[in-house]
């Protein structure tokens, strides 16, 4: 495994864990709040927007990882 592959694995595992946690949070917010409440929706939408920006940054920097990290040692 090259360092680059390890970084990709870290990204995939991190995303999977976060997706599970966020899905559980959204499920509970939908189930245990009163109808018509918008605060939870606003917070979740803000979180998702920030997460997408950070994910974009992560992918951007991952693609800029130098060649030396992509070669198996």
């Amino acid at each position: 495994m090259t360092p680059f592959t390890a970084l990709i694995s870290l990204l995939v595992i991190g995303l999977a864990v976060e997706a599970f946690i966020v899905a559980a949070i959204i499920y509970h917010l939908r189930k245990y709040t009163l109808p018509g409440w918008t605060v939870a929706r606003t917070v979740v939408a803000t979180y998702l927007t920030l997460s997408v920006i950070l994910l974009g940054m992560a992918i951007y920097w991952l693609l800029r990882v130098p060649e030396t990290f992509r070669i198996s040692t």
Partner: peptide
Amino acid sequence: HAVAFFLLALYLMAVLTAMLLTWSIYYL
């Protein structure tokens, strides 16, 4: 440099998720 900023982005995503989790427990 690129690896550090990549790990920083992942770290910030984890902190953000932990923040959302803490807030949702407070909110619920």
